[in-house]
Design a protein around this nucleic acid. Structure first.
Length: 145
DNA sequence: GCCAACGTTGGC
DNA sequence: GCCAACGTTGGC
């Protein structure tokens, strides 16, 4: 079981829209980067991830769960590109900003800081727990239930 | 809106 | 297989 982070520009696909899809979830389509795709291929059902608003907001706003393994991306005919489905699990009570992440020495190696442009990133368990703590989640959901 | 970082493409 | 040109991402 593992943890991840998904970036989305809120004017393209926001946390509110993601939550509106409920348990059915939504495919995380449109990724055209090999590293991001490879991360999605490595995801398992029940893995959790952060939902991050890039460009506007610049904060972790919620937690999502992987609800479908990597499958062809329906927005392209190019067989190279795949995507998983994710569904909203819960809000971050206190959204954690990029600034806060950068200011926390425990998170200095987080991909959000070191691989700024990667849109689908791995998150270590320690990083996951620390960001949840900063976001006001004392009892964060754990991957795999 | 700017521009740095960085991934991809294509000529050689 | 190198590397310059180009396109995109995303913080500022």
């Amino acid at each position: 079981m593992a943890y991840w982070l998904f970036k989305s520009e809120p004017f393209k696909w926001s946390w509110e829209q993601q939550k509106a899809r409920g348990k059915a979830g939504e495919q995380w389509d449109g990724v055209r980067n090999y590293q991001a795709r490879n991360n999605m291929r490595a995801m398992q059902l029940g893995d959790l991830g952060f939902f991050y608003h890039s460009n506007v907001g610049l904060e972790v706003v919620g937690i999502v769960e992987i609800c479908a393994l990597a499958h062809p991306d329906s927005t392209t005919d190019d067989p190279r590109w795949e995507c998983v489905d994710i569904r909203a699990v819960q809000d971050m009570p206190d959204p954690v900003s990029l600034k806060d992440v950068k200011a926390n020495p425990k998170l200095e190696n987080m991909a959000l800081v070191t691989s700024m442009r990667l849109s689908v990133q791995p998150v270590s368990e320690a990083e996951y727990l620390e960001v949840c703590r900063m976001g006001g989640l004392d009892q964060p959901p754990r991957a795999g239930g």
